[in-house]
Amino acid sequence: MIEIKNLSKSFVTADGTVDALKNITLSIIDGEIYGIIGMSGAGKSTLVRCINMLEKPTQGNILIDGKDMGGLSTKELRAQRRNITMIFQGFNLLMQRNCLKNVLFPLELAGGKGEKAKQKARELLKVVGLADKEKTYPAQLSGGQKQRVAIARALATNPRVLLCDEATSALDPQTTHSILSLIKDINKKLGITVIIITHQMSVVEEICDKVAILDNGEVVESGKVSDIFSSPKSKAAKNLVFPESEQSILPREENEHHIRVVFNGAVATKTPFIASLAKDKGIVASILGASTKSIGDKAYGNMLLGITADETRIKEAIDYLSKFDDIFVEEVE
C-alpha cells in the first residue's frame, strides 16, 4: 500500500516560490491501477517524482507498506527504488545500448550478471512482444516499441509498483491503446500496482480503477473512476469529464436551458427518456452533444440537452428525468 500523507512540495525559483503540491493525501491499494490526472502544470510529475524521492518533499510523508520513504538511508533508498520503477513520456532509453542491454541495465546496477540476467532480460523482451529486437538499438525503433523496451526495463528488478509519467502522451491513439493493454496485462498477471499520470481522460477511462484529479497542486477529487465519471463534482473534474461544456457549442436562444444527463448502466442507455419526456410532459428537448464511454465493464455516458421553456417547465423536466434509474440530471449554466 502506498500512502501519501499531507504531501507538499515547493520550488524556490528566481521568480519566487512555486507551490507545486499542496497538502496531498492519497492511499493506493496494492494491485490497483491508479490514475492521477490534471492539466499541464497541475503538479502530476512532481507528485510521482516525490513517490520515489527523485524530488524531496517539502512537507509530509510517503509511506510504502508503512515504511517512510523520507526516512531511508541513501543505500536503502536505492534498494527501494528497484521496487518502484518508472517509465516516462520520453522513454529515456540508453541510446548506445541495444534493447537487450537496456533491459539488462537495471539488473547490472543491482549486481546481476551473466547468463541468468540475460535470460531474464530475454524473457521480459518476450513479455513486451519484442523478442526479435534483442540486438536492435533504440534509434531504430518506433515510439511504441521504445516504450515497450522501457516497460521491459522497468520490470527487470521485479518491482511492486510501476510509475508511469505520461507514458503514452507521445504516442498515437492506437499505439497508446496497445501500451495500455500491455500495462493492464502486467498489472493483472504480476499483480504490480500501477500509478498512471496523464492529462488524457481517455487513458484513465481505459485502464484505471481509481483516479485522483489534481488541480493547481491540490487533489480536488478522488475515488472510483466510475463514480467520478458519472457525477464529477469539482470544476476541474467536470472540465475533464465534459470538455465540451467549457465552450458553449451553440449560441443559446432566449429561454433556452442546457441540461446535462449523466447515466450509467445499460438500462439507462436503452431508456427512450427523451421521447417519453415529450409524450408525458409535452417538453421537447434537442440533443446538443452526447458521448458514451465504457469504463471498466459498464457503459457510461452523458448527454447535453437543450430545452427552450420557462423556469417552471425546466424544473418539471429535471424532476421527471431524475426519476429514471441510474440517471443524474443537472442544469448547466
Partner: peptide, 15 residues
Amino acid sequence: IDPNIIETAQSMGAT
C-alpha cells in the same frame, strides 16, 4: 547527455 537519462538511472537506484 539528456539529463532525463541520468535521472532515469537514478530512479533505478544507480550509484
